[in-house]
Design a protein around this nucleic acid. Structure first.
Length: 489
RNA sequence: GCUCCGGUGGUGUAGUCCGGUCAAGCAUAGAGGCCUCUCGAGCCUCAGACCCGGGUUCAAAUCCCGGCCGGAGCACCA
């Protein structure tokens, strides 16, 4: 039986109740750190859906906690998204809508659906845990209005919060009179000290989504219990309700993603910064030569499933490799160089193609009577062996040791092991090789391997940021003069 | 502990809503072969999975019940 082979485009499943031209999605990062591949998943999925339905994508900075937001991250996040190829149709900040948010809060108070609570934090927490209402809940609308005014004008932190009159007996504890506004006196990076009452995510997200015209609000699974609250708030205010879609958080084997886990690594010096090549931040992936398209394919492959999975880097590498292979120049690098003296060698200059099948030009290598080969290769050689120096000629091994003596052994490359080498035109070169940061939950002290050696001088013609392949070594990206970062085999 | 959400080969997914076309597709990793002056790419082949137990049904990966395992939430963070 013959089966037709269909090379189908990998895509996302259809969105529920989605109409072409009417879909609005949104990516709402908090400007308190750099993006990582988990954010990329959310951003890309939202963008893909907007694109799939010829809709719009909103980038909204959920900057409602002045204590955490930092000015530098607004721009950093935009740049990282741009690099990823995520181009929002609209960029906005939740903090710009704070007055509107106040109005909705006041409406809620007037409707008798929210109250100002002046209990102490611990009491509120205890009441929520036990399902107990507090006396503040009984305040009149007038009293609430006047206290709310105090929250806006002169209350200090921890003096009062605005709470939703939910259901203190609800099984879903999120519904037990959650906090809608709290007071934060720390200056906001964009608004300074103009406001003291700041909405919580639970309040701002549904209202912003509704007002922004978002039709499908996608968020990761940890918010699932908050769906009910999200809809409760919109119902209370009689506002349009977006469709909520959840998907599992992306995890990568051996790699911390959350800011909570990355920050200590940076602060303790275990990694060099947000762009340390061992991390899965956008900055780090870019620095290693992982392409935006590979990241896109990778996260689409994960899709919107709610299954918790822990993919390995392999899949990402494989996707990246296929994308960069046809574009990457081939060059020689010999880590831990060992000198090989060659008897009867005639001096020559060889022209080597920069790519076996694509025309990426060529380079010329001069050879006299010695070359350097990688220690790893040298250790495998025994007297009498014949090996092919790629693109040059064959040699026969005459003596092994700290140096190798060999002799010229013909031109035919057939059926001989092939190794890369460098000749007269060589420069010292370093490659940083990132490995898994954590193994079995333990920090891997050897997670960043440094490989020093000789590269052929042609590396000096590479641009910083260029991705290339060291033959039989792997794909790398030039990070600075004389230093590259290993991407993958 | 309570409440939710999940569980398809080593890994990641498709299929599950609307039971049969699924003796389960694809990718990745693995094995073997071809090709190649790279341990890369490409081509071919092989091997590998429906968490467990009941039930419903002519028929269950798909529906129901119970269990087991994993994750998340239980903040004046988002």
């Amino acid at each position: 039986m013959e089966r037709k082979k269909v090379a189908e485009e990998k895509g996302l499943p259809p969105l529920p109740q989605a109409e072409a031209g009417k879909v609005v999605t949104r990516f709402p990062p908090e400007p308190n750190g750099h993006l990582h591949i988990g954010h990329a998943k959310a951003a890309i999925i939202n963008q893909e859906y907007a694109r799939m339905y010829e809709g719009r994508l909103i980038l909204r900075f959920d900057d409602t906690n002045p204590a955490k937001e930092r000015l530098e991250y607004y721009e950093a996040i935009r740049e990282e998204l741009e690099w990823l190829g995520v181009e929002p149709d609209l960029v906005k900040n939740t903090s710009d809508d704070i007055e509107t948010l106040y109005e909705h809060a006041e409406r809620l108070i007037r409707l008798g659906l929210a109250y100002v609570c002046t209990c102490r934090v611990e009491e509120i927490r205890r009441g929520r845990a036990l399902g107990l209402e507090c006396p503040c809940r009984k305040r009149s609308v007038e009293e609430n209005l006047s206290l709310w005014d105090g929250m806006l004008k002169d209350f200090g932190e921890n003096e009062a919060v605005l709470r939703l009159k939910g259901d203190m007996k609800a099984k879903n504890t999120v519904l037990r009179d959650p906090t809608l506004f709290r007071i934060v006196l720390k200056p906001h990076p964009l608004k300074g000290t103009a406001y003291r009452a700041w909405p919580t995510y639970d309040f701002s997200a549904p209202i912003e989504d509704s007002l922004d015209g978002v039709t499908h609000a996608m968020r990761s699974k940890e918010y699932e219990l908050r769906d009910e609250l999200y809809y409760t708030i919109l119902d209370a205010l009689g506002m349009r309700k977006p469709i909520l879609v959840e998907f599992s958080r992306l995890a990568l084997r051996g790699t911390p993603l959350s800011k909570r886990r990355i920050r200590p690594l940076i602060e303790s010096g275990k990694v060099s910064g947000w762009d340390d090549p061992r991390l899965a931040t956008i900055l780090a992936l870019r620095r290693r030569g992982i392409t935006p398209e590979a990241i896109r394919r990778f996260v689409i492959e994960m899709g919107v499933s709610k299954v918790e999975s822990e993919p390995t880097w392999d899949l990402l590498y494989s996707m990246n490799r296929k994308l960069i292979d046809p574009k990457s120049k081939r060059l020689h690098f010999v880590p831990d160089p060992i000198r090989m003296k060659i008897e009867n060698a005639e001096e020559r200059v060889v022209r080597l193609r920069c790519h076996p099948s694509v025309d990426l030009g060529f380079r010329e290598l001069r050879v006299k009577d010695e070359v350097y080969i990688a220690k790893g290769d040298a250790e495998r050689l025994k007297v009498g062996d014949r090996v092919r120096l790629i693109g040059l000629y064959n040699v026969r091994i005459e003596e092994v040791g700290d140096e190798i003596s060999a002799s010229y052994a013909g031109e035919s490359p057939i059926d001989l092991p092939k190794i890369q080498w460098v000749g007269e035109d060589r420069v010292g070169f370093r490659v940083l090789i990132p490995k898994e940061l954590f193994r079995d939950g333990e920090f891997n002290e050897d997670s960043l391997e440094v490989s020093d050696g000789f590269a052929e001088s042609a590396v000096e013609g590479l641009e910083i940021g260029e991705v290339f392949q060291f033959v039989r070594f792997g794909f790398c990206r030039l990070d600075s003069k004389g230093v590259a970062i290993f991407a993958h085999k």
